[in-house]
């Protein structure tokens, strides 16, 4: 049972709760979300405690993460999008913390569940659509009609554009979920080989060391991709191409 590589994704209720017939139990998934929040708050608040003009090591790490997100927003969505900085920064640090916490052995990876990633990407999708309509009114629907297309082609193009708009939150969530889940499953499968091969288990063990490094890169990269795509969608809503 413990050898099942999918066992790590099981959700266990820790405190059973129910509100209006809906199961809102505090699960191991919730524990890691709270842990991620604590890690982020500790990282930022304790890092900026000194507020030194010449930052120390920790403070410069906090400042670097701020600048990374600030530059990302400016380069992809322009200076007008800077007002959405708090949202993008929270999104980036939350996903990054969840992904990296999941790399600790025996821990739980929250982002390997599509409900979580789809909730986040759905939130981005709805938010961006509301921003688009509030800035451009009904003119936002021009996004679906490419400029300079003949009216006959528009009959085909408009459904395609609408579908491609609705696919975005799906591909956004599937990308994060699939990468995290595939990586962690692969790690567990190879861990199983280490035991069953006995002495020759050294080979999969060596492979797992390399794979762990790769998984840490994927964890950081996926958090970055998720937030940069949120910025790109924001850019479409603000500038309307």
């Amino acid at each position: 049972m413990a050898h099942n590589p999918l066992d790590q994704f099981r959700i266990n209720r820790i405190v059973e709760l129910e509100a209006g017939g809906i199961d809102v139990s505090f699960t191991n998934s919730s524990v890691f979300m709270v842990a991620a929040l604590i890690v982020i708050c500790a990282f930022v608040i304790l890092g900026m405690r000194q507020k030194a003009l010449v930052p120390g090591r920790w403070q410069s790490m906090v400042e670097m993460s701020y600048e990374l997100v600030a530059n990302m927003i400016r380069d992809t969505a322009g200076s007008e999008a800077q007002r959405y900085f708090p949202f993008i920064f929270s999104l980036f640090t939350f996903i990054l913390a969840l992904n990296l916490l999941g790399m600790i052995p025996y821990s739980f990876t929250v982002t390997s569940h599509i409900v979580v990633t789809f909730a986040m990407s759905g939130f981005v999708f709805i938010g961006v659509t509301i921003i688009g309509f509030s800035r451009h009114g009904i003119g936002y629907t021009k996004l679906f009609a490419p400029k300079g297309a003949s009216p006959i082609l528009l009959v085909i193009l408009i459904p395609i554009e609408i579908i491609s708009y609705f696919i975005r939150p799906i591909s956004l969530s599937v990308r994060l979920f699939a990468n995290m889940m595939a990586g962690h499953t692969m790690l567990k499968v190879f861990a199983g080989f280490v035991i069953s091969l006995g002495m020759y288990g050294i080979l999969p063990l060596a492979f797992m060391v390399a794979l762990t490094g790769l998984e840490i890169i994927v964890a950081i990269l996926q958090a970055y991709i998720f937030s940069i795509l949120a910025c790109i969608y924001l850019n479409d809503a603000i500038h309307l191409h």
Partner: peptide, 12 residues
């Protein structure tokens, strides 16, 4: 400060 084309991502 205007939006440039997408920032260079790593090829991965």
């Amino acid at each position: 400060n205007e939006p440039k084309s997408e920032q260079s991502l790593s090829s991965a």
